[in-house]
Amino acid sequence: MDQYLKVVFPTRRLVWIDGVAAAWTNRVFQVETGHHIVTLGPSMKNFEPDHFDLHVTGTLPTAPLIIEFTRRDTDA
């Protein structure tokens, strides 16, 4: 029931899972098997996509699910 996830972003940011700050970017971390809404901390909305709606299963600590947020220039 333990799964492993890595959220890639150019800088170190808080990763929010199901509405709460739950991990850091660019580092493998453990999550519970199942569906999760994953996004980055809301302080700076300079990333896309807005969020991932994932079903996390079948991962390994050595083969985590890797998702990537890209930096988006904020509207001037």
């Binding site: 709460v20 700050a21 739950a22 991990a23 850091w24 971390f29 453990q30 999550v31 519970e32």
Partner: peptide
């Protein structure tokens, strides 16, 4: 959650 505190 203890898991969250480990992940953080």
């Amino acid at each position: 959650s203890v898991l969250t505190r480990m992940n953080l």
